[in-house]
Every structure is written in C-alpha cells, then in structure tokens.
Design a protein around this nucleic acid. Sequence first.
DNA 1: CTGAAAGCGCTTACAG
DNA 2: CTGAAAGCGCTTACAG
Lengths: 346, 346
Amino acid sequence: MKKTDINSTEIARLAGVSRSTVSRVINNYANVPPETRDKVLKVIEEHNYFPNASAQVLAGKRSRTIGLFMIEQGRVSGDILTNMLIVSVIEHASEYGYYVLTHILRDAKDAELIKGVREIFYQRRIDGGIFIGADNPEPFIEELIAEGFAIGVVDQELPEHPEPNRIVLNFNNDSGMKQAVAYLAGLGHTNIGIINGDMKRLSGVTKFEGFKMAMRMCGLQVNPRWVLDGDFNETGGYEAIQTLLDRREDLPTAIVAANDSVAFGAIRALKERGLRVPGDISIIGFDDHALSEKHHPALTTIRVDLGDMMKRMTAYLITKIEQKSPGAKEITLDCSLVVRDSCRRV
Amino acid sequence: MKKTDINSTEIARLAGVSRSTVSRVINNYANVPPETRDKVLKVIEEHNYFPNASAQVLAGKRSRTIGLFMIEQGRVSGDILTNMLIVSVIEHASEYGYYVLTHILRDAKDAELIKGVREIFYQRRIDGGIFIGADNPEPFIEELIAEGFAIGVVDQELPEHPEPNRIVLNFNNDSGMKQAVAYLAGLGHTNIGIINGDMKRLSGVTKFEGFKMAMRMCGLQVNPRWVLDGDFNETGGYEAIQTLLDRREDLPTAIVAANDSVAFGAIRALKERGLRVPGDISIIGFDDHALSEKHHPALTTIRVDLGDMMKRMTAYLITKIEQKSPGAKEITLDCSLVVRDSCRRV
DNA sequence: CTGAAAGCGCTTACAG
DNA sequence: CTGAAAGCGCTTACAG
C-alpha cells in the first residue's frame, strides 16, 4: 500500500556520505562543513525524507510529544473553556516543535483508566504531561511525579519539598475573592452568601478561604446558612439555590459563585422560582467564561486568563523536559473584576 | 531523574523465560500455555512494566495513534463544535486503544505548516489521520492519500476511482436544504434568500446546489440579488446582511444561512439595523450549534450530528488501519429540521 | 511450546 | 571532519 519508505541509509548512499553524517546534518551538529551539509539536505529535501520518529526516540532522542490529561467527570458545562485550553496547549507546544497527545479521563478514580495514563508515560510516548481538573492531591499523579516524569498541574498545592520535575500553576483565588466581596460590599451588600466549588480541588478550598477572609476584612459576618455546597458545575449552582429556597428562610442579597457555570445554574434556579437577578439577588461569578458576556443578565465576574495559564504551562513543561530549568516551578496568576449586569446597589 | 526503566530482558529474566516468550504474552499469542502466561503476566504486573512504544513501532507494530488535523482559518465561532468534535474523536479512539495527536492548521496553504503535517505522517508518528475543514480538493491531502496513508476526510467529494485508503464522510446537504426551503415555503414564504458558505469547501457548493434545487421543487424563483456570499463564519453572515441592506432594494422575507454561525451574524446585523427576526425576516440555520437553542430568538435550523460523524469516522479509520476493511469508504449522513423561533408564517 | 538471532531505523561515542 | 560499529527495546520468522 505504501511506497517504499526511504531511510537514512538510502539518503547516505544518495548523498555519498555515511549514515553518521546524515544524522549529524539532521541533528544540526556543528562539525559538518557547509558543502557536506548542503549536499545532504538537498537529497533529504528531494526525497521527502523525514527520520522515523520511533527510531529516533529509541536511540535516545525525545519524543517531542507532551500529554494533556483532562479530568472531566462527565460535565459538559466547561465546553468552551475546555476547547480554548486544548487549543492553547496545542498551539504553544507546536511553537516549540512539540506535539500533544490529548487524553480524557472521565473518572480519575477508575483503576483501569489510571493504568491507561500510566501506560502512556511508561511506554515513553510522551516526554511529560499536563493535568487539568485533578483533586489536590491526586495519588496517581503523585506517583508519576515520584517516578521522575516531568509533570505540570493546575490547581494543586506545591508540597513542602517539591520535586524538581513538578510544575504547579494557580490563579490567585484569594485576591479574586477579595475583589468580588469588596465590590459587593461597595454596592452596599452585607448579606452575602457563597456557593462553593468542589472542595477536593484546591481552588474549591482557596476560594472559600478567600471568601471568608474577604468578608472579615470588609467587617461582614459569614452566615453559615448561606454557605452552600456545589461542585463547579451548572447543576451544582442550580441545586444549591433550590436547597436555599426550599428552606424558606431569609435570603442573602448577594451570592458569590465558585465559578461562572455555577452562577449560570444559580441564576436559572432563581429565575425559575420567580426571583430576579440582580433585582432580588445579585450574583457574581468566577472565571469569565466565554458565555458570561452574552448571558442574560451579563454576568459580573472575576476574570482569569486560562489561555495564558496554559501557554505558560506548556512553555514551562517543555523547558523542564529539555532540562533548561532546574528546580520545581510554581506560579500564581492574577485575576481581576469584570463588572457587568448581574449585581446591583442596595 | 528516572528510576531505571525495566525492559523485556529484565522481565524475561525474572520470569525465567526468553524475551520471545515475554513478547508472545504481551501480544496475546495463542501458543503460550496458561501457566507460562500467568507467570509472565505476574512479573509484568508486579514491576509496572509497559513495553516501550517506540521499540514496538520500530519492530513493526502500529503506533496506535491517529492524527486529528483541524484546519481553522483563525475563526473562533466554531468553538463549541470544535470542542465536541475533538472530544468525540479522542473518546472513540480510546475505545479502540488508540491515541489522538491533535494538530491545528491556521492556514492550509502555508508551505511550512503543510510540511509539518507531512512530517507527522512520514515520521510514522501516526497510523492514519482525519482532516476537518479542508478545501475540496486539498492538494497536500491528495498527496498523502496517494502515498498510501489511511486518511479520513469530512466534507469532500469521493473521486471517481477512489483509493482504498480514503474515507469520506458527508452530511446530506441536499436533503437538509430541501427541508429548510420546504419549511419556509410551507410558512408561506416565496421570497427566500441564501447566505452561502465557503465555496471552496464541498458543503459550500452542495448547500447552494441543494438550495436551488429545493427552490425549483417548491416552484420558487431564486432571486440572484438575494444570493449572498459568505464563508461559514459569524462575520460572513454579518457582512452579507450589511451588503444586502446597503443596497436599499427589496428584501427577502426569509433567508437560509449556510450554517448557524452565519445565521447568528446575520441576525446580529439585522437587529443592528432595526429589523426584527422573525418579525421582519425569518432566518433558518444549518448544523444546530450548541448555542442555537439559547440564542435570541432560538434558531430554527437543520440539525446535523457531528458527534456521530466523528465517531463513525474514528471507527472507520481504525478499521481501515487494521486492514479489516478493503476499499474506499463513503458515507452520507442524514440531517433534520429543528423548528424553533426564528421563522414565522407570512 | 520455546529460544537464539536478525532486524526495525536511528544516534553517538570511538577511532582515525 | 567522517565512517564503522554498538546499542536503543522490541517482534518475529526460523529451527528445534
């Protein structure tokens, strides 16, 4: 079915040199005189020759492929975010001449699926991997890091004695929450509630901690009845509001949602029960999801630059793989308030 | 940095057999007695051993990786569709034990980028590839097919003497257009316009052809002033309507858009000019984009199951790679009308 | 049923 | 500056 593949032996023969020299040309070694190099390059060009990647890797080169592992527990609400994130990693990896093997994990606790991830690393299909959506910590990721694989994680803590092959990126959720609460307080809100995210994830915890601290700084009380459980999904926000309304007690005048999807769900539930946003209750989100601007009402939220985060992550990981960076790497990125129409002055 | 990798020699030693036998166990060959197999599997299990993928490929096995090449000329409007499509391919490939190398091509005419695609194939990083968004035909894809690589393409014609390694999947745009026009005619519309897609793509052409045929079947005239150029993007729809309105001539009472993104753009332009949809002009889309339901007005459209298409494509491609299917493969999938709020009776 | 050996297509010390 | 040769870790006829 295939035309005979050409190999380095053939190129060497055609160029009148040895395979060693062909290899030196391909790998851009310094000790090849320009004439030899040009002669070889010409033959390579003419024959559409590309060295077999497996042979190169087996002989010790890198695979120039990174793994992108997305843990998505069946949710779809992250659609647009997910897409932007995948594309961001792929495009930046490609700038470094790296390829991306994307892998989706529907359940990070399923032993078979975990084995599949391990397989990708141990088979040396990839030089390193990026994990999105993992718990903090996630045992199988810890194991891979312990094995020495170069790994980047979003939304996890840096351990006390971090391995040099670990990269951790986070957003400054503390600062984000402070901005959200300060903004609401500035609008005169004192009765502020929160719908939390998934507390197994670092951002679930840091957002709640940030919220509490921010309330304290604004001289406001956290009413435990207005601290609602959620999970970072639209459904979580929807159900949190239903629970709240079913209790038929006092309502907060403003609610901070752990992210925009949660906010969408919350607003949907409020509308269904005849409450207006922001007329009756103000809602502020987190993330600045692509849909937030088009939402009715347009969602006031804390903007986070996920594209930038993935771009950095990709760059750091590749740098790490190429051993141009020594120790562990940790970065915390800023976030900022975006005012739209879902919060009102009281 | 890495613990010493274990290899098949080591496994063989520990299990007290030869590497040949280890290989036979790994590859599930029949001629290994159960006791031997179990003994070897136990050692493999215990040592977390996974055979080096490069060595396997070099020795003649498949890479179990397919390429997903997305040609996206800088547009973002396809966001949700793109995401769904990537995820669909990845998940179905994974069911067959295949990995997906995703690659984004911002410009299918850029020689450097094309070389990058060719490299992936010739380096044998992948066993086959899927192309989305290509022109019909696209020379460099034709070349890859001629080279014998297993390739699946969406939205292209099957040539007269198709190579056995070619897979072509399309939607029945003819039927879709007939449903759209028949529906509008049924609502009493006789003045129906169209905003075309990119005519370099097969669906651009077939949709327009389908439209003309459908108009004829409904006994309606195609007014050339109401045949507007577009490009499958939101902007294309927006600009088409501006051009139309700037001419200050009679307007159609209904417009068929080449896809939903185009319809969104068209509606945005109409609203900006003070025209109501469907009050003044009815608009019908094509695709049933994830946003169409949430759009104001909710978009009446022709639904197409892109997820199903990618699922089939993935399955066909892998079957082809594993040589379980002989000749070329061509499938045309149905589409169906979804009535919402963007068309009215006249 | 099983092992020894060749071979896949590269890279890279080594020697000159 | 350059070539011969070993080695990467598998698979697979081949022989028994």
